[in-house]
């Protein structure tokens, strides 16, 4: 369960004060598949940073799995990210010239998981993310965009997180590869009941989620169940 209560985020520079988020409140139940949608400058990236514990709100409460994480310090936030959150980024952010396996085990390195256990979990995660086993020992920069993003999804899965957070995961992909990636998220949601939040500005991407939160100018303007969820079957 995730609860956001009156989340406000203010960025201050010397002269200007920008309110990126204004009193945002919503709940996420375990196993939901949500798209947060809005144009650029709407505050969706700020919201993603707060949801992902990369940043803390100026005011308001954020309960993640029952714990208030809105006032934590850097290293405490890192600990929360390590155990509860898996990120998928628009530009994949894989370690270049490192093997697929090494990329996927990275979060486990910081959790002091024994080496044999790491590899086992990495392979499991890669399997769940839909990457063929023949690619496991390839270098990450030898893969196609779709394959790279599936490696990134596997990396997000490997620490068995409470929440998977994807920031424009199809932004760098053509529509066909984009569908492959979205299918991977849907499978994780349907089969493993994982909580997935996708941040996007494209309605086409948001359509694949079960619930869509529209955000504009730092406020939620619509929070709806998507009765026409587009299901991908490849």
């Amino acid at each position: 369960m995730i609860e956001l209560l009156n989340i406000t985020k203010i960025y201050k520079t010397v002269s200007v004060e920008t309110k990126a988020l204004k009193n945002v409140s919503f709940n996420v139940k375990d196993g939901e598949f949500i798209a947060i949608m809005g144009p650029s400058g709407s505050g969706k990236s700020t919201l993603m940073h707060i949801l992902g514990c990369l940043d803390v709100p100026t005011s308001g409460k954020y309960l993640l799995d029952g714990r208030d994480v809105s006032q934590l310090f850097d290293d405490e936030l890192a600990e929360v990210r390590k155990n509860k959150i898996g990120f998928v980024f628009q530009s994949f952010n894989l370690l270049p010239r490192a093997t697929v396996i090494r990329n996927v085990v990275l979060p486990l390195v910081y959790s002091n998981v024994p080496k044999i256990e790491r590899e086992k979990r990495a392979k499991e995660a890669l399997f769940n993310a839909g990457l063929e086993e023949s690619h496991f020992n390839h270098l990450s920069n030898q893969l196609s965009g779709g394959q790279m993003q599936r490696v990134a999804i596997a990396r997000a899965l490997v620490n068995n997180p409470f929440l998977i957070l994807a920031d424009e995961p199809t932004g760098n992909l053509d529509s066909k590869t984009g569908e492959i990636v979205l299918e991977a998220f849907q499978k994780l949601n349907f089969k493993q009941k994982r909580t997935v939040i996708i941040i996007t500005h494209e309605f086409y991407v948001a359509e694949h989620a079960r619930r869509i939160i529209h955000i504009r100018d730092g406020s939620i303007i619509k929070d709806e169940i998507n009765h026409h969820q587009r299901i991908i079957k490849l």
Partner: peptide, 16 residues
């Protein structure tokens, strides 16, 4: 820099 950002996002502490 990006690699550092990534490592931090998957849970690396400042000390790491």
């Amino acid at each position: 820099t990006r690699e550092i950002g990534l490592r931090k996002s998957v849970g690396a502490k400042n000390k790491d």
